[in-house]
């Protein structure tokens, strides 16, 4: 999933150095922000997102009620009920989000020099570091 985020960013702002990524993650999206954060550094290594901060905005589960028509946020995702009448004839209308909300990019006059990721043969070295990192973490 972290790789999917990196690919989506790369497609959205091709060639730009990215310093911060903001994601909207629904509580019913199946994506756990902590797990994504764990994979983040590995996924961005060697890309134009290297070193970028990850900001996550959680989106609550929202339902509309077929009985009373109210739209409400669900307090307990394991007890899905209408927040107005407590009925359970509800349709989930929000909380599945997994959305790239915004990115912060460096402007042309801010482009870094020495720490800029290098293309070509150096990529192979970076790939080795990616492979080595999880093993380090497991020890």
């Amino acid at each position: 999933m972290a790789h999917a985020v990196v690919r989506t960013v790369a497609d959205a702002v091709p060639g730009r150095r990215v310093t911060c990524v903001t994601l909207r993650i629904g509580v019913a999206s199946g994506v756990v922000p902590q797990a994504l954060a764990f994979a983040w550094d590995l996924a961005v290594a060697g890309t134009l997102l290297a070193g970028a901060r990850l900001d996550v905005v959680r989106v609550p589960l929202a339902v509309t009620c077929r009985d009373c028509g109210a739209r409400s946020e669900v307090a307990d995702p394991l007890r899905v009920r209408c927040g107005a009448c407590a009925g359970n004839a509800v349709d989930v209308v929000g909380g599945r989000d997994l959305e790239l909300a915004s990115v912060e990019v460096l402007d042309d006059d801010e482009l870094p020099g020495a720490d800029e990721p290098t293309a070509g043969a150096d990529d192979i070295t970076v790939a080795d570091e990616i492979t080595a990192a999880p093993l380090e973490l497991l020890r």
Partner: peptide, 9 residues
Amino acid sequence: MSLVELRTA
């Protein structure tokens, strides 16, 4: 630094 709004799935 520029903020780019995207709202892309």
